[in-house]
Each structure stands twice: as structure tokens, then as C-alpha cells.
Design a protein around this nucleic acid. Structure first.
Lengths: 181, 181
DNA sequence: TTGCTCCTCACGTCACGTGAGGTGGC
DNA sequence: TTGCTCCTCACGTCACGTGAGGTGGC
């Protein structure tokens, strides 16, 4: 003999789940106590166990109800139908995965073409009228004012780590020189 | 310039879907006509196209809305999160598949143990007082009155096809004898 | 009396579908 | 006038979760 809360805890469910199961008639308590409490018997618990098994298979509660209340010659057919439905659902999620991957790729592509690589930047700076010396000056200023951002920027151009390190150390050397060290 | 119905048809959606998109603010028409009709522009259509793409990825409409209205540096993160969620969901459905298969197997097993095998039948018939001769007579009767059912029955006992064939041909031979052939 | 469990509504969720009752344009 | 589309509520779906307001047993 159980009350709702006890039965719920025994099966790792919430009380409101059992109240819902009662309301839709898939699991009705065998009796009521004097104080109008729901009283569940061992037979009710056994039924709940079956319900949980079928729920783990993803069957709808209405289906479970008709399955438990009807003779079980339909059970196998229902389970096989569920198997097919699961295949469909998994296929749909796989399709969604493909869509997500495509979206990620197209975004990466767009960013690649939208953002700049080394050649593009050099071209712009040169068009602005900067020579080799001014470009070095530009790196030095960038490194002096925002060294981390400078590093991030260089890496975002797709330059190798060693070249990034070379540019930055050369910039730092120039900074030291300008300080008279 | 489109009205709801037109735009819906163009994208293979229902009118109520667009009404719903309006109500939650993910796609608001740019204007209203004199008669209070929703008026959608090409820009709205472009936005709807993006919405459909993200929906095919299984993103929630709220997420899509914030994704479209915010700068898109969060897009990649959201898509990657969706990819993980999809993996989880697929995993859960696979688990459900395993449960269904187990249920089907256990049902088959239960039926096997509930139903009879050859030894069980022979034991029952022998306990009923039948000797070898009467058992042959029983097969003969069964084969005479319902040959297909006889075959099904023998196969249901898990007997090999060759033994089934032997039993039945012997039964048929007896039938022929009893007819005086 | 204090906690605890119990009770019965009733509303919210998500992405729509489906009327109901009424209006506007060809 | 007849169809057609349009409009705005409002309710239903599925499996619960979450209060709200109140009662019973240790």
C-alpha cells in the first residue's frame, strides 16, 4: 500500500507525474483512504513498472494505456511500429545535423572571404602610402598599445606562429630602442 | 510585397505559421494595408528564408529570433551547441531503440516458454495414456482434417523441417492406407 | 504548534492547427 | 451575389512542472 509520494519516490518519478497518469486514466489508484488520499496497491505498482518500461521505449501514454488494457496480441505490432518511427526520427535528426554542419561551414567560408588575410592588409596599407619602414612602425605602435590584440590580429590573418613571434619580437626590440635602452 | 497567404505559399508554410511567427515577434510584417492586412516586403521574405534555414537545423524560434536580431558572432557558438544537443537526442532515441528491441525479444522469449515444445507435448499425450501407435493416429487425424495447421503446429515446436516432412509424409501414407489405396 | 504529505484547480510550456465569427476586394 | 483572402480571439495538442489555497496525520 502506497500513497502518491511514496510510489513516486519508489519509481524515481515526481508526484505530479502520477497525478497526471491518474487524470488520463493510465494508472488509477485502487482505492482512496478516509482522508481521500490515493491508495496504490502492489498491483498498481506492477502496472506502473510496465508503464515505465514502455515509456523508456518512447511510447505515448495513450498507446501504453490501450496496450495494458487490451489483450497483448497487438503489443508486438505496436513495438515494431515504434521501431520504425524511431528510425524515422533518428533520420530527421541526422538531417538536422547535416544542415547545422552546412551552416557552420558556410559561415566559416563567409568569414574567410569577408575577413582579411595578410596579402589584403599589406595591399591596403601600401595603397595608403606606407612603405616597409612605416609598416614596421605600425606593428611597433600596435604592439606597444595593445600587445595581446596585436597577437590575436596576426593570428587571425592565418600567419604561422613562428612568423607571428618574429614580427612581435622585432616590434618589441624597436620599442626598447625607442626608449633608449 | 506579399500578403500572408502569398508569402506562406511561396515558402511552403501555412498561414497560421506566419501568424504565429508574427505573434512571437520572430517575423513581423513591415507594414499594414488600408484594410489592416499584413504587408510583407522582400526584406521580410529574406528574413523568413533565414528562419526556415535555422528551423531545418532544429533551432527553437526564440533562439532564431535572438540570432537574427543580434550581431552574428554568437551564431557559431549556438550552432555548435545545437550539434551537441542533436548528438544527445540521437543517443536517447538509440537507447529507446535498444529498449524496444529488448521488449520484443523478451516477449518472444515469454511466448516461447509459455508455448510448448515437442517434449512437452509428448509428455502430455503420454500422460493422457497414449502409446506410440495412438500418437501416430493423432498425427494422421490432424493431417487429414487440417494439413496446413498440422504443418504450422509441427514447425511451432521448433522441430527441424526434415523431421516435419517425415512426420507428415508418414501421416499421409497412413491416410492412403486407411482409404484402401 | 511545526513540518510533512496530501488534496484540487488552474495556468504555462512549444509550434503550430483548427474553428468561430466577422470584414474587405474582385 | 458568390468566392476568395483577410482579420482577431480562443481553444487543443503532449507530458508534465509549478504555484495557489486549503486540509489531515505525527
Amino acid at each position: 500500500m502506497f500513497t502518491v509520494g511514496r510510489l513516486a519516490r519508489r519509481f524515481g518519478l515526481s508526484r505530479s507525474t502520477l497525478l497526471y497518469y491518474h487524470s488520463i486514466g493510465v494508472l488509477r489508484p485502487s482505492a482512496r483512504s478516509e482522508a481521500n488520499y490515493r491508495v496504490y496497491t502492489e498491483a498498481d505498482a506492477a502496472r506502473l513498472e510496465a508503464i515505465c518500461r514502455y515509456r523508456k521505449a518512447g511510447l505515448a501514454l495513450q498507446e501504453i494505456r490501450s496496450l495494458l488494457d487490451a489483450p497483448d496480441d497487438r503489443t508486438a505490432a505496436i513495438l515494431e511500429r515504434r521501431l520504425e518511427a524511431l528510425n524515422d526520427e533518428i533520420g530527421q535528426l541526422r538531417e538536422q545535423q547535416r544542415v547545422v554542419v552546412r551552416l557552420l561551414r558556410s559561415r566559416a567560408l563567409r568569414r574567410e572571404t569577408r575577413s582579411m588575410d595578410k596579402a589584403g592588409w599589406v595591399a591596403i596599407l601600401r595603397a595608403t602610402g606606407l612603405g616597409e619602414e612605416e609598416m614596421l612602425r605600425w606593428h611597433v605602435e600596435f604592439e606597444r598599445r595593445a600587445p595581446e590584440a596585436h597577437g590575436d590580429f596576426l593570428e587571425s590573418l592565418g600567419i604561422g606562429a613562428d612568423e607571428v613571434a618574429r614580427i612581435r619580437s622585432r616590434s618589441r626590440a624597436e620599442i626598447a630602442v625607442s626608449r633608449g635602452e
